[in-house]
């Protein structure tokens, strides 16, 4: 993505310009995150309110799932500790991905329509990275607290041997699931280049996202196939958590341990290609 970066002799003035440092501008991304955090912290009360309201919303949902599981003894063969680990993992991994992508790409269609996106193209930056890092969202505090709390609650009651191998798998699974979230939001955001409006796609996303909280085995076979393939929500938590706690994964079988870690990077690559193609189309026929 980086253009020609060589030292250029200014033919007009004879002045020789220093070459721009090659590669990714990490200092810029770090600076953007700090600017964004400072901006958000100017409205501290609203940030705390967002944490509290979101926290209560999630806590309510999790409590109702807990009640159902206690009343009926399980859900699709999953006990409460297993479910707690699944829900915690789902919330935590989603939040990591969403911090970098959700609010950023939710506003993508307005950004394209109102020409703000064009302002990024006239700067020597990768527009995707600029959007992601300049929009880092601090609103996910309650997601992390609740997610971690549920995972700890579940893991404490499960016979898991937390050796280096499992720890590594856990972290890699979280990263893969976070990448999956980021990739999905990127794909939806890229639709803005093609459709003009993409915000409504987020509604569809969250309908399916709700389904991905639960063990995929409780759904009918056609829906399972969709969640494992076309709309790969199964990899957000069900597949990686099933692999970690040793539960069978329908349809995938022995491929599950590899796919649990590979799904995120694969979808991220596809999202990058899709984003690039849509951007190219925007530059060719948009305006």
């Amino acid at each position: 993505m980086v253009g020609r970066e060589d030292a250029t002799s200014d033919s007009m003035t004879g002045e020789v310009r220093a070459p721009a440092p090659p590669g990714i501008n990490l200092a810029l991304y770090w600076h953007l995150m700090r600017l964004r955090a400072r901006t958000r912290l100017q409205y501290r009360a609203s940030l705390v309110l967002a944490w509290i309201s979101q926290g209560f919303g999630y806590a309510g949902t999790f409590a109702s799932i807990w009640v159902i599981l206690n009343r009926f003894g399980g859900l699709g063969g999953w006990s409460w500790p297993e479910m707690a680990f699944l829900l915690g993992f789902h919330t935590f991994a989603y939040a990591i991905g969403a911090v970098f992508t959700f609010t950023q790409f939710r506003g993508m269609d307005a950004m394209v329509r109102e020409g703000e996106f064009d302002m990024l193209l006239v700067r020597p930056v990768n527009p995707w990275s600029f959007i992601v890092f300049s929009g880092v969202d601090l609103q996910y505090g309650s997601h992390f607290v609740l997610g971690a709390g549920l995972m700890i609650t579940g893991a404490a009651a499960l016979p898991l041997a937390w050796d280096a191998g499992l720890m590594l798998r856990f972290l890699a699974s979280l990263l893969s699931a976070a990448l999956l979230t980021g990739a999905m939001f990127t794909i939806i955001g890229a639709f803005a280049f093609v459709l003009g409006r993409s915000r409504y796609v987020f509604g569809l996303y969250f309908d399916l996202w709700e389904l991905s909280r639960y063990p995929i085995g409780i759904y009918t076979a056609p829906l399972q196939i969709i969640l494992f393939t076309v709309l790969p929500f199964a990899y957000m938590s069900f597949v990686p958590v099933s692999v970690m706690i040793g539960k069978p994964v329908p349809l995938l079988g022995g491929a599950a341990p590899v796919l649990a870690l590979a799904a995120g990077p694969i979808l991220a690559l596809m999202a990058a290609l899709f984003w690039r193609a849509c951007l190219r189309r925007h530059q060719d026929i948009g305006g």
Binding site: V2, G3, R4, E5, E114, G115, M119, V122
Partner: peptide, 14 residues
Amino acid sequence: IANAREIGVVFGQR
């Protein structure tokens, strides 16, 4: 990107 490094752009309404 190489072009953007050597130009400045002001859009009156952005």
